[in-house]
Amino acid sequence: MELDNIERLLEKYFEAKTTVAEEKVLRAYFSQEKVAAHLEVYRPMFGYFSQGKTEQFTKELPLKETSKGLFRRLYPWLSVAAVTVLMIGVYFGKKRYDQQQLEKEKAQYAYQETKKALSLLADNFSRGTEKVAYLNEFVEAKEKIYNKN
């Protein structure tokens, strides 16, 4: 008997022990014209469930392919660029520093050489004054002679 079967299924249904297939049988039964009078109560329930799948989502989905801005896409590369700039800076900075250091050394050397040359000159000058001292002697002697006369 089909009715027996439906009643049995209903019992299982309310204990949540029916399978999806059995529930389909129930919905099919309650969707037909003739339903046993004492089961009429359940008709709206299964009727409602049967039509529950008709509603659809119709709203548009504004999907953006590039959801990130230009900046956000380039952002990871920013650090790479920064490091590169820093390295270049350090490299050329070092070069320049070395150059300056070399120039300084050269200047120091030139200064020392000049100093040496000047002291040589000074030595010779002082030797010159010694010789002039002899001349003084001569002048004094000459004076003495003049005074005696």
Partner: peptide
């Protein structure tokens, strides 16, 4: 899930019976 489902179905049945 089964417990909640059984309760829900029975609750619907009860309300339907009342109305009926």
């Amino acid at each position: 899930v089964r417990v909640a489902l059984s309760r829900a179905r029975k609750a619907v049945r009860e309300k339907l019976m009342e109305k009926h």
